[in-house]
Design a protein around this nucleic acid. Sequence first.
RNA 1: GCCCGGGUGGCGGAAUGGCAUACGCAGGGGACUUAAAAUCCUCGGACCGUAAAAGGUCGUGCGGGUUCGACUCCCGCCCCGGGCACCA
Length: 771
Amino acid sequence: RFKRMRGFNVLHPIGWDSFGLPAENAAIKNGIPPRQWTNSNIQQMKATCERFGFSYDWRREISSCEPDYYRWNQWFFLKMLERGLAYRKLSKVNWCPQCQTVLANEQVVDGCCWRHESTAVEIREIEQWFWRITKYSDELLADMAELKEGWPERVLVMQENWIGKSRGARVQFALSEVQAAPLEVFTTRVDTIYGVSAVLLSPHHPSLSALIAGVPGSTAMSEQLDSMRRVNLKAADLATAEKVGFFTGRFGLNPFSGERVPVWVANFVLAEYGTGAVMCVPAHDQRDFEFAQKYRLPLKVVVQPLNGTVPRADQMEQAFTEHGRSVNSGPYSGLESSAAIEKMTADAEAKKFGEAETTYRLKDWGISRQRYWGTPIPVVYCKKDGVVGVPENQLPVRLPENVVLTGEGKSPLANVPDFLNTTCPKCGGPATRETDTMDTFVDSSWYFYRYTDAHNDHAPYDPANVQYWFPIDQYIGGIEHAILHLIYSRFFAKVMRDLGLIQHGEPVRRLFSQGMVQKGGRAMSKSHGNVVGADEMAQKYGCDTARMYTLFAAPPAKDLEWSEDGIEGCSRFLNKVYRLVDRHAPSLHSIDGNLSESFDIVHASAKEKLLLRKAHQTLKRVTNDFEVRWHFNSSIALIMEYYNEMQAQEPFEQDARPEVAKRLIELLVLMLAPITPHICEELWEMLGHSGGLRRISWPQFREDLAKEEQFEVVIQINGRVRGKIQVEDGLSDAETKERALNDQRIKHLVHGSAVAKIVVVPRKLVNIVLR
RNA sequence: GCCCGGGUGGCGGAAUGGCAUACGCAGGGGACUUAAAAUCCUCGGACCGUAAAAGGUCGUGCGGGUUCGACUCCCGCCCCGGGCACCA
């Protein structure tokens, strides 16, 4: 509303992210079909939005569970399939036994489901569809430079960590006694390789069983391996779990030094990162240090601090992990760490036992869900042609209704023969449909583009519309979206750009992370069951009061423990404003309150001056609070102060011309209009205006009206306030100083002391520093 | 462990190096009223001081620093919230 008053063409849309598990679970619990349950919720929420006057553009309303929306999810899927961005593979997945479905990596929190905080995620092997978000890892990282201005730093940091780029080298350790492919390790500190005491393998390392076969004691080792693999701790516990390992009986050869080093299995080596094998350098890695201490592996110092001495191996209490200078490192001794890394990597490449490599923590996005209430994946399986995408002209693949929902670990769609059995688009022979549905984060990854063209039935949107509106000027959302939704959306924009649909690569220019509203110390949410109904508040106090109070309670960036203490104050205030207007409206009804550009405050009465100044000073700060700072609570406080001043000057119409009196009241109403639109419409009409506030501009701030003639200057002695004087504008520093020193009380206090210095801040303060 | 936020009256919070506690809530006192509601006026950081004033000292998580002057900037801690976490 404020931006519209400022003359902007504002697109303020609304839509319903309406697919997903909660609807399905509620349907199972209550015996209502998900669509019915979902749509009745939408009706209710829509009524609330309308009641509160949120001024959404309802012509652009969308709902992701409708075929006219989700067909475009399917369309994007097919585009990705064509381009090799969608692929299917048997993979270990996170499985939530409560949800009975797969979770994306992003949906696993502390080793548990993001919805079921106490349910540990299991690992299962299932055929899954993936989207190749990792193809964009570098770009997702690099383009964050564009977002530095408009995005909160913490969100960027979280995304950067999530992508987790690290540069290093992959180095081969040949096995010394067996005929087998060399072990490959990934390291970011190849400069420490002369300090290697062992090669450590993950318990899940693929060549492990072949490696230990035939080694004495291999049966015991297999048992030990089995138990290590079974341990399925929460990620958080994993980080603090005790380090355990055993020697495999095999040896590898350090390609740089030629040294023979033992190969160990260690529980803390991650299988899914790098190569699943690392080099163990106890002197320069804290984890290796702890492991080596426990198993008495040798410790060899190969890096020393730049301005220190070589620490004695037997006196080290922890690993020295920083960069420094190489020592005991053959031909590389004496090089600084970064130079050593560069040279050793180059040499490894030249001698073909290693190469530079960059790894990422980001993994491809698994989008298959074994549940009903989502977008069907538009693929059929044919005995002859294999995996075949559904042709575009057959979209949407409709989600069948009247399906028996079981909530058990496979998609209910597999039990719907009419859906399941189809013909192959290629050969016309019998085929079956994919029965998994898409992760609902697909729905929310591109929905905002649809707002520009919500009813297009031959494309997700007309690129020309997107060209006009995008990138989004201002996106608002909770911090919980920092990684999941906001990284998927950025990925989607890049895919759409590569499809030639859009010109830009970043969908959101400015992001505002609002605080979470809490109740009883937890985020207010349906799943916690601690939601305070907005309708009840509106019922009791009116929706303008409710709107005002939610803005007044705290700045929007802040988390807020919800309480309705204080809403009475907003209610009282709006009543006072109403009475003020009601009091003056009859006499001012037919007056033109538009002060001309040439209106000169010099000729105004004292009361006119006082109130016009207050009004325009308020206007200046309120405008800034709305536009720049987003501190709606303090803008409301300012408007209250302005009202208080008007109230204190009553009856001001006696000392103010009617057009001035009217303008003063109009300014109050206009500043409140974005906050409490309904009452302001009424007040505006009472003041004699027809046609409503719809096309009324935000009032123009006038410096000349806001300007003070007199200023209160604080007099300090040694930084403590000791007096105040009134000075007129334009008084020189010297004169201000003079006046301050002539003040009776100051004279008295300064008397007899030596003045070391006097600081004058024009129109504000004089500080007299006594020695 | 690392990275972000945050810590101000009884409460929500204000103050972008210049009068700390604006605005509002709750509370005390008063006016109006037969009474209540509503409304209006008024007082509220702590301590010392005073018959009451006037004054004074301390005070924005703790300890230092920079500055004429610090809630604000710098350094070091503590506590709370969030994120990442055996990523080699």
